[in-house]
């Protein structure tokens, strides 16, 4: 079983934080196919959060094909995610490094680069469309 935590200052909607924490746990191998997620009530008790938020997160995980609800039992993980580590994405990282060199050459400094990344990332945090 995993536990969730909420960061009120992150600017990320609470339900998305839960979705990401499940994805993260899958990537880290803490969760695998067949594992049960904490019940809504358990999350509510632990994190003190609106139960609707937890239900919404679980629905989103179902929508993404990562989990399925068994009525009256709970929500279960339906697939394991490959252990795609950062090292497997070396070419992507190299492109990012190249982009950062360009950004610096264009006069952007650390905070500017971070702001641009964040604002671009926030345009579509879930990679839709």
């Amino acid at each position: 079983m995993i536990e969730f935590h909420l960061d009120a200052r992150s600017g990320v909607a609470p339900y998305l934080q839960i979705v990401w924490q499940v994805r993260q746990a899958l990537l880290l191998g803490l969760l695998a196919e067949g594992d049960q997620l904490p019940t809504v009530k358990e999350v509510v008790t632990k994190v003190v959060i609106n139960p609707n938020t937890v239900s919404k997160a679980y629905r989103e995980l179902e929508h993404q094909g990562l989990a399925a609800a068994k009525p009256g039992v709970g929500t279960f993980i339906t697939q394991s995610l490959g252990q795609a580590s950062l090292a497997d994405h070396a070419p992507l990282q190299e492109e990012l490094r190249a982009w950062m060199r360009k950004a610096r050459a264009a006069g952007l400094t650390g905070p500017g680069i971070e702001a641009m990344f964040q604002s671009t990332f926030r345009e579509n945090p879930e990679g839709e469309k």
Binding site: A8, V40, K41, V44, V48, I49, N50
Partner: peptide
């Protein structure tokens, strides 16, 4: 929140402290 989860109760709660409401509303 446990009561909301168990009984599907709707809630209206007032506060002048926003930090209280952030997680629950």
């Amino acid at each position: 929140m446990e009561s909301v989860a168990e009984n599907s109760t709707s809630v209206i709660l007032s506060s002048h402290l926003v930090s209280d409401l952030e997680r629950v509303c």
